[in-house]
Write a protein that binds this DNA or RNA. Structure first.
Lengths: 337, 337
DNA sequence: TATATTTGCTTAATCGATTAACCAAAAGTA
DNA sequence: TACTTTTGGTTAATCGATTAAGCAAATATA
């Protein structure tokens, strides 16, 4: 019908008052009479008035938009984090813009530019695996926009970080496998330059040492931890003259790849080789055998990330520092170990 | 350092020219000298100037923001659609705001309000399962904002729609099962009030008729098609005095639930009972046996949805009508059938 | 009654980028 | 030389909502 958005002016003209009065009436300013307020609200409803966020955002310097950048929304972990961020922020009047980096540094830089261009009030991000150069993230800081990192973070940026204790998680896993009587534990790991994977590797190495196991170099690999990577690394491990009797993969996807190979080779899991993944992806309960894994408290992390942003939300100046909120991960033992 | 965003004015002051000149210089207006342009661009770069999108959006009436609403990002189908929408739109200078309805009608209404409030230039959506009332979607239309539906659409809204041919897909599946010698084919279906599920049910019924099979009422059920629903329905089917020898589930999740029960009951798949899902979720290749399913061309649908929006993007008036783009789904035969 | 206070608005400036309208100086043309 | 055209800008209005400042009328106070 009207095919045109209603503005404050439309209401003002209709009631023959100023737009200022209309604006105040809608925000329940005490200097506007109840009579006028009621009249304004009635017309507003009739005309289906909705405030133009762009205008108020421009005026107030606040867009009420928060940018979230994840490697991919297509993992139950990130999807759940996202959902919780959205929930918390929506309840506080913020909207969320989601962008995916697809683990690409270039895409990540573009996304950051996009978010800054859109005038977001803050950015919550988990870094791409290949990201090493932090210039683009520094750019966010230099514009005075609060930056909250989760999962894949970076100490050197000196901003807030929310994640689990990866180092301890590795200990937990190794401990568990040792308890099961395993002697030769291999680790299909992520790249060392990504802090969380580095921590998992360190945790693995130190836990072995704690139990006086010797570290076999061939037992540790670095990759992107995809299903395909899991398959490749598993094949390599089986080809060793002394193959391991337990595998700890730093992602459920890699664990799944490993499991596929083990099944193809008719190797009994967990009898001959035990398997542990990381991330508690839903498919770990769908396959046979179900895979032992580590839960990363995605919901909690999403909430904490959002709440951390909110702490900065109404301050005019932003000064951030390294402030870590670390949750304890939870080992979920299933059939594969 | 500066902790303050650079504006046109900052550049203008530095060069002692008007902001209008700066604006034109940056957009390569022919009425600005090369010398001035170069000077402006240099300062812009030095000060790390980034245009305030809110201001230009307000002025031009275009936010360059497109809202996307899906039931959930946590499915490979929606995630892939999303990724492709984003890709196409980003390349044309648009940003994407993603919201999830979690299959809730209330959340969907809130999301629509949010998107309208944010002044998006268009909305691409797939409806929640429980949505029956179309008032909120009508609201989008009445504001003159282009609306593109995909997957879960609705003819009565008279807007563009992109999806697969659900009716034909059911035929394909039944055809396939009949070829495998199956006589008693059950259907774990979605709710009839959702058009796509209704079409799948109709396709199933008509295909049975085509092969002169009698329709057994107990063989058809309606549910939300979650894993749990799949388990429940499968149990019911097994409890019948004449259980089916083939299951066609309208979602992979329901198919997975059914498979879990079949395995628990030690029923051979596909020997005793064949199983077909819908959606080609990655886990269908991860379980044992791998599940036969239907691919919905998520990437293609995402691209088409984005391109359809772009057709309206620069027109001042929007008049939409029912305009369907239907892709043929692809049957992917695997071990379960 | 005279002054102070409160009520209920209006006016005008502002946020930052864009653009129509305008103008002075330089260059071109007859 | 006298007029036209082009060049290279400037001024001011605009998008819609918000808000500081102002002001007249109504009400309260002494």
């Amino acid at each position: 019908m009207s095919n045109k958005k209603t503005t404050l002016k439309d209401i003002a003209v209709k009631l023959n008052i100023s737009t200022a009065a209309v604006s105040k009436a809608l925000r329940n300013d005490s200097r506007i009479s109840t009579k006028t307020k009621d009249a304004v609200k009635k017309i507003a409803k009739d005309l289906d008035y909705q405030p133009n966020n762009l205008a108020s955002a421009l005026r107030s310097g606040k867009s009420n938009l928060v940018g979230v950048m994840v490697p991919s929304t297509n993992s139950s972990y990130f999807s759940s984090v996202l959902q919780n961020i959205e929930e918390v922020l929506n309840s506080k009047g913020y909207n969320v813009i989601v962008t995916q980096s697809n683990e690409s540094y270039t895409k990540e830089c573009n996304n950051i530019d996009t978010l800054l261009f859109t005038q977001v009030d803050g950015i919550i991000a988990s870094m791409a695996n290949e990201t090493v150069d932090l210039d683009y993230f520094e750019k966010i800081k230099s514009k005075g926009i609060p930056l909250i990192l989760f999962d894949r973070g970076e100490n050197d940026l000196n901003v807030d970080y929310i994640g689990i204790n990866d180092y301890d998680s590795s200990h937990m896993i190794v401990e568990h496998l040792v308890e099961q009587g395993r002697k030769n534990i291999a680790h299909i790991g992520g790249f060392k330059h990504t802090r969380i994977f580095n921590n998992r590797i360190r945790g693995y190495v130190d836990a072995l040492q704690k139990h006086s196991f010797t570290l076999v170099d061939e037992y540790v690999s670095e990759s992107n931890l995809t299903i395909e990577d899991g398959r490749t690394q598993m094949k390599k491990l089986l080809a060793l003259k002394n193959p391991p009797d337990a595998i700890y993969a730093a992602s459920d996807y890699a664990a799944l790849g490993a499991l596929q190979i083990l099944k193809e080779e008719n190797i009994a899991v967990p009898k001959t080789i035990a398997l542990v993944g990381f991330g508690n992806e839903p498919f770990t309960t769908m396959v046979t055998p179900t895979i032992t894994t580590v839960d990363q408290h995605s919901a909690e992390i999403g909430k904490l990330a959002a709440e951390t942003f909110l702490e900065y939300a109404d301050k005019k100046t932003t000064t951030q520092q390294l402030n870590k909120k670390i949750l304890e991960a939870k080992l979920i033992v299933r059939e594969s170990s």
